[in-house]
Design a protein around this nucleic acid. Structure first.
Lengths: 175, 175
DNA sequence: GAGCAGATATATCGCGCTGATATATCTACA
DNA sequence: TGTAGATATATCAGCGCGATATATCTGCTC
């Protein structure tokens, strides 16, 4: 069974505890969003696909008069999740508009380069604030994964800010 | 005029010199690919859209008997490019499967966490080798942007490798 | 108890993007 | 002469994203 990227996120979330589609979206928005986002448009169709493949099971658990389908992972689902975790390949994709601007800014003028780096620095600083906001939340989870990943996020943004500031210093000297 | 992400890459490339669609793909595969990829499936339709909007102009320049359309940027195109470069927003998206694995691995067992970090380290090491391969190529371009961006790529992967190794040390101690 | 904001829950749509594949011609070299 | 590989364009299925639509429920205020 080939898992789509959203499928992997869903299985990973459901491996901890059963959830509804809405719930999955809420959880990922507060956690994996920073390195792997999921949207409703993909979550609901994927839940149906995973259920059809037997990797998860849905059960109707209405809350009052509001209908609600809660999904839980099956034994096959855990197997598929473990298979993915043990597979060696890794996608690493960076979509960094700041770098793109920096790359092309030079064709314009030097000021554009400096502006691009300043913007990039500010964007990382904003990300840092966001991550620090969710820090208590991640530390509360006893599992080691989320805390490690948050630590990486903090370190990464701090690195990027430092790089931007060093770059700006160098560019100012050259002037 | 709203530029799509591929549109921006195309305009940025054409701002340096006129190129064919195939050519644009070849250039981006050796440069922006690391932080903003483009594929044929998007390049060719986008070239037509940009030409229709008057931001670029295509001219038939067959090479022997093989037909070929070379595009060059127009004055309006340069304006649109400058507008984007001066706009403050920045998309910053990270799709890091290594982090995703790390995040979920903890639900399995500690060995899976260590395996995930090791894999991540190796992936960054491989990226580093690739970047060092294109280093002479980037330094040759006199423009400052590409060299800066390459420098960032090198520093970023070095940072990530260091982080992975520090993490592994900590996890081993806890054992 | 009326009214309303906001949370819960699911569904859907257009558009863009990816990766792969198809087609064709040209060049270089054995 | 053959063929591998570069040049060049086009196309397609499937997936992903962001936004929006619909509906119900909860909690709060006046």
């Amino acid at each position: 069974m080939d898992l789509s990227s959203t499928g992997r996120v869903i299985l990973g979330v459901l491996a901890v505890e059963p959830r509804s589609g809405y719930d999955i979206k809420a959880v990922t928005d507060k956690s994996t969003r920073f390195f792997w986002a999921a949207s409703y448009g993909q979550i609901y169709p994927e839940l149906k696909r995973l259920a059809e493949a037997g990797l998860i099971e849905g059960s109707d658990e209405p809350h009052g008069g509001r209908k609600r389908t809660v999904y839980r992972i099956t034994r096959d689902g855990r197997k598929a999740l473990a298979e993915w975790l043990n597979a060696p390949e890794q996608v690493h994709e960076l979509r960094d508009e700041g770098l793109l601007k920096l790359f092309f800014a030079a064709a314009q003028d030097n000021d554009a380069v400096i502006a691009a780096i300043r913007e990039k620095r500010d964007a990382h600083a904003a990300a840092l604030v966001e991550l620090r906001d969710i820090e208590p939340h991640a530390r509360a989870a006893e599992r080691v994964g989320p805390a490690e990943v948050l630590g990486y996020g903090l370190a990464y943004n701090e690195f990027a800010i430092r790089w931007c500031e060093d770059s700006l210093k160098t560019l100012n000297k050259e002037k």
